[in-house]
Design a binder for these strands. Structure first.
Lengths: 145, 145
DNA sequence: AAAAATACAGAATAATATTCTTCGAATAGG
DNA sequence: CCTATTCGAAGAATATTATTCTGTATTTTT
């Protein structure tokens, strides 16, 4: 999986605009459309480009509240970890979830309509997962990036 | 900015695959291509769809280490906040940055090649920003979502 | 040095996006 | 209660883009 400088340029262009067309990418990297096309297909094939997505304004779809939630487990046996992780994967409110090494065990980002819905989420979803220990919520006031 | 059920379907489809073409979207939502096209353009125009991006496998581009970094400021005067925020915006290693209300002031996600590069980032980039207080790093071991 | 593989360009074709015109249904105004 | 207007959609026509195919120069392998 060797990427040369041109591949990296392509990646940067498609990160900025996932719908930039071949001709335009070709122009910017200084190649004709064919090798450009083939390079992009290769990047997709070998898994460097994992897909494309539309960036949605979450407030427009009624997800006004974003919360970073730090979770610790009570038990660190394999079973507890597996149960917790598969429960998290099923929750649509959770947009990202990382298993981390540090002060806590998991970092979750949660997106919900408002505080009331978040409270309901905590009480009726998160708190019901077995083995769960401490939960610490940080409410996003603004997104710099 | 009123979204009906069809708009929400479109949003979900384009989130799964930002390059899904009009014809296919139209087929899935049960409309012909023209109104589908016009709805998508409208969603882009009014800012519900903010853009499109390629999803890149970060390990493929040599960013093997992901860190969630919690930062507190020493001073919470407006000036300190502004200086910190504009410094953060300039750092390419920082992929996301949130100003939060909670135990700390900022949550950053950092992507770098390895621990050595991270240490260098902490010492030579982050620690040099004026007004910075506590920094707490959590290293991502696995990504559930 | 010959053979094979690689990377690219340009042309041809296939598929898709975009625009334009038209139609029918719902709604507001007279 | 009828007519004008708006709205949402369909279908055809056109423009643009993606994809494939063919040929050539360059590099690598044997």
């Amino acid at each position: 999986m060797v990427l040369d400088a041109i591949d990296k340029q392509i990646i940067n262009l498609l990160r900025e605009n996932g719908k930039m067309n071949n001709k335009e990418v070709a122009g910017k990297i200084g190649l004709s459309v064919t090798p450009t096309f083939e390079r992009i297909k290769r990047l997709e094939r070998i898994g460097v480009i994992q897909g494309y997505t539309a960036l949605i304004n979450r407030k427009a779809i009624g997800r006004d509240l974003k919360v970073i939630c730090q979770v610790s487990l009570k038990s660190h046996e394999k079973e507890g970890i597996d149960v917790f992780e598969s429960a998290i994967r099923e929750l649509p409110e959770v947009s990202h979830a990382y298993h981390v090494a540090g002060a806590t065990d998991y970092m979750l980002t949660i997106e919900v309509a408002n505080m009331e819905v978040y409270q309901d989420f905590l009480k009726n979803q998160l708190a019901r997962i077995p083995h769960i220990g401490q939960v610490n919520s940080s409410f996003v006031m603004s997104e710099l990036k």
